[in-house]
Nucleic acid binder design. Structure first.
Lengths: 180, 180
DNA sequence: TATGATAACAAACAAGTTGTTCTGTAAAGA
DNA sequence: TCTTTACAGAACAACTTGTTTGTTATCATA
């Protein structure tokens, strides 16, 4: 990728994350981003069609990092092992913690909802093939419950108690309330 | 309240819910609502300052209905009784089902997130004084988990399987996965 | 180093949205 | 009936969005 493109792209990302700590997503205009990134109007639209596309691109980039080992490990690990699954989730929490700076703004505003939606999509894939069969309650409900609970656990962790608990502790809380 | 005001207000609400089944919340303009409600521009702004205020007012009105008995019963019921708490939640599900028509549009779009946020606020109050103390896992986490799980249960119920399950069944699913 | 490709820029553009303000009209309520 | 008040309609400035144009700067590479 052209060095100029990279420079512009990161400038936009940086401006976007910075601004999200001051304004809400819907209150944020493309003009704001352009001004903060100090780029030309047409340049922005050469990179992203809309503000939503920008957010989507950011989420994709973040999750590519957060779930990178997930994707790598898929061929090697035994998913039916419960301890290894707990380790996987803890790993995801660690990666999220690393990206904490970039994520904080996205997470807190109303676009946290969009972030959560993407997050859940990834989690569904991770949880789907691990969830054991268990009569009585429909599988679709249990899958939704496990994924939602984990996603909300992360949101709670970041929002209220950012550095109060370690990934291992948070993971333990989750498994205490959602025994898989 | 003046009959004209009532008429206008309901016309706006109706137009709003109708339009939300066709467009997303952010794609929906005040002008769309004005046209659909067939009212003057200044009339809309005499009732609501912004589109967000309209959504907020709708949510408030819906929850006033959904939680009406909750508020009434507060003085009479014993909240520590687990069976009565299950009944309360089932009641809430019944009320939501009644309002299903008005809610469907709000629930599905991105403004479902705003709806969810208000919903969770009410639920926190309901759950807060029922949640038993239980060492190990922080109370704040368990409260968040119980509330989030219930809210997500409702979302799942409405989204994927609207009439596939009764309120009693859904309530049973919830208590099977989140034993209080 | 010279050169063709391409990304960035500034400026201007139309089209649409927002929220306000005005005047005249019609309906409500006492 | 008479006063009050909500509504309609129109016009308004300010802003946002997304596109287009011609120019300049930067890049990769021969």
């Amino acid at each position: 990728m052209d060095r100029r493109q990279r420079k512009t792209r990161t400038a936009i990302f940086q401006a976007f994350t910075d601004l999200l700590e001051q304004k809400t997503y819907s209150a944020l205009t493309v003009q704001d981003i352009i001004d903060a990134a100090d780029i030309g109007r047409s340049t922005f639209y050469a990179h992203f069609e809309t503000k939503d596309e920008l957010l989507k691109a950011m989420c994709t980039e973040i999750f590519a990092h957060v779930f990178s080992e997930e994707i790598m490990q898929e061929a090697h690990h035994d998913f039916s092992d419960r301890d290894s699954f707990k380790d996987r989730l803890t790993h995801i929490l660690c990666h999220l913690q690393e990206k904490q700076q970039s994520i904080r703004g996205i997470f807190s505003g109303e676009c946290g909802e969009i972030f959560m939606r993407y997050f859940r999509e990834y989690l569904f894939q991770v949880f789907d093939r691990h969830l054991p069969d268990d009569g009585e309650v429909p599988r679709a409900y249990r899958l939704n419950h496990a994924v939602s609970s984990f996603a909300e656990t992360v949101r709670w962790w970041f929002r209220e108690h950012n550095n109060a608990y370690t990934p291992e502790e948070v993971s333990a809380f989750y498994f205490a309330c959602v025994p898989l």
